[in-house]
Structure formats: structure tokens, C-alpha cells
Simulated scan of single mutants.
Amino acid sequence: MSHPEPGLVDVRPLADHPLTEAGAAALRMVAPGAVTAGRFGLVEYRLGPRSPGAAPHYHRTFSESFYVLSGQLTLYAGGRWQPYRPGDFALAHERGVHGFRNDSDEPASFLILFTPGIAREEFFAEMAEMRRSGRRPTPEEMTAFYARHDQVMVEE
């Protein structure tokens, strides 16, 4: 059995991971878990000015890290919302309550790293389809959707 050579073995050009628009948000699955053998998933996320992102929630089986590329991102951590700027990093471990939004008048872009690399692209694809179609799921449907994707919503 041959083994791959150490080093870089998978290069994905930009065309392989296009930007998906979803209202005031856009995201790009830079490296989904399917590409990284489940080791991690990497998403580039963009929020327009004064845009909601994700209300406080947690995940049971994976962590999320945030790295701000541009603009100002407001993250929920430690029970409060606080601004993060380019170069700032935040880590939400499994069961760590977190959320994000853009409270500023400028767009914000950031990376989200999921570890391990669960199929988070399915969550984002379903959310984008709901926004595109204008479909308003019932509270019961949203609870089932979140449960299917290991997302537990919490009150602030």
C-alpha cells in the first residue's frame, strides 16, 4: 500500500468553493469536512452592515473558532456581546455558548473553523435555501432543524 507524500496534497482553486449569497450574509465553504477527512471545516463568512448573524447557541460535538479578517464583528461570549476587530481570534469549545452579528456600519468578514470537520455545509445550505425561498419554518421545524445540526439555542 502506498502512502501519500507528506506536505500539501489537496489544493482547491477559488472556483471550487464559490461565495453563496444569503441576504445580508454571504459565505464560502473554503474547506468542508469532506475535503479534510473530517479533521476540520473552514468557512469564510461575510456580514453586511447592521446584520444579524447567529443568536447565542452551543454545539455538543464540535468547537468553533472565529478569526476576524475585516470590519468589526460582535461576538457573544462569556455572557455578553463584545466587539472584535481584524486579527482578533475567539474560540468556543464544545458546549461553549456563543453567537455573532455585525453591529457596525461597515461590512465584516471572518473565518469560522469547525473542529472536528462535521458536515456543517449542510446547515449553511439549508439556511440559505430557507432565506432564498422565503419559507418561514414553524418553531417545531426550527427545533428539529437545529437538533439535526447539533445547534442548541439559548436565551441571552
Rank of each mutant, 00 (worst) to 15 (best):
G99V: 01
T36L: 10
V11L: 13
R135F: 03
D16Y: 07
N102I: 12
A55N: 07
E141C: 02
A77L: 10
Y84D: 10
D88P: 07
H3V: 14
F66G: 05
R120S: 14
G117I: 07
S51P: 10
G79A: 11
L19N: 01
Y58S: 00
P4F: 06
F100R: 02
S70V: 09
Y76M: 12
D10P: 02
Q72F: 03
L75R: 01
H17L: 10
D16W: 01
P137D: 06
T143I: 05
L27V: 10
S70Q: 11
N102D: 11
R148N: 00
A125V: 04
F123T: 02
P116S: 04
F114A: 04
P139I: 02
P18E: 10
Y45S: 07
E155S: 13
L8E: 12
R80Q: 14
G79C: 07
T115N: 07
P139V: 00
L14C: 06
T36D: 08
P18V: 14
F123S: 02
E106V: 11
F62Q: 05
A55V: 14
D88R: 09
G87I: 14
R120H: 13
Y84C: 15
R39H: 10
R101V: 06
F62R: 02
Y84A: 15
E94N: 06
G99L: 02
M127Q: 07
E141W: 01
R46K: 03
R136D: 12
E156C: 07
H93E: 15
V68K: 07
L47S: 11
G71S: 13
L69V: 15
F100W: 01
M142S: 01
L14H: 06
L113E: 04
Y76N: 11
S109P: 10
A77C: 06
G79S: 10
A15Q: 06
G78S: 15
